[in-house]
Design a binder for these strands. Sequence first.
DNA 1: CGGGATCCATGTGGATACTG
DNA 2: CAGTATCCACATGGATCCCG
Lengths: 128, 128
Amino acid sequence: MTSPSPSAGTDAIEPPSGCPVQLASDVLAGKWTMLIVQELLTGVKRYSELQNALPGISSKMLAQRLRMLEESELLTRKIYATIPPRTEYRLTRLGHEIEPVILAMTGFGRKLAATQDTDDKRQASLPL
Amino acid sequence: MTSPSPSAGTDAIEPPSGCPVQLASDVLAGKWTMLIVQELLTGVKRYSELQNALPGISSKMLAQRLRMLEESELLTRKIYATIPPRTEYRLTRLGHEIEPVILAMTGFGRKLAATQDTDDKRQASLPL
DNA sequence: CGGGATCCATGTGGATACTG
DNA sequence: CAGTATCCACATGGATCCCG
């Protein structure tokens, strides 16, 4: 990335297959995935806690995303066979590696919001 | 994030609306968006260069994403009304702010790949 | 409480063809 | 070269009902 050599021989093109960015966004895609991870980043959460923290999510989507993240080994599920049942979701070590992504997206999201805020025409002709 | 206080009074819940992460992933979502930005991060690119660098993308998707990114002020389009026509795409300053996100995702993507690689049962019982 | 199953509306994205 | 237009297949995701 940092080597600006346009005609380097070793890196042919860089197809989507095998591209780390593609792998990551493949797993993190989906409307709620990032938000779920963001919640889990603050600690262990139960199913109902997640559902409560994510206003608007349906139980289907929550369960689905949770399962996806589990299959990708980003979180673990701990089931307490009690009555009433209780399930705890906890990020794995790999799951915690998502934090820099969340952080970066938070930073960018803020700049995006700030830009759209100061977006009125008063200085639309600012140089690039 | 770093304050583990579960019952802090100032942060009620954090609905998806207004959440920076949601804003960012809203703009960066889409199958090819990240890859396009990644290409543009290395410098100015023409339409055909992008299409060439992104094997499998259709002209429709490329144009569509490019327009989206332009509307979000993440890139600018410079059209040369020559024959044959020539269009150059260049990230804006705001667009370059995506780089940390790409970098973070690259890092995570690599760890993901490495984990899936060393995923055979030989040490499935490693501690979290 | 923590889901699974089903149905369905919409969005996303691919293929193809056409244009300035 | 740099797109646009149209059609269509499939994936995403919401609503609702049901179950252990």
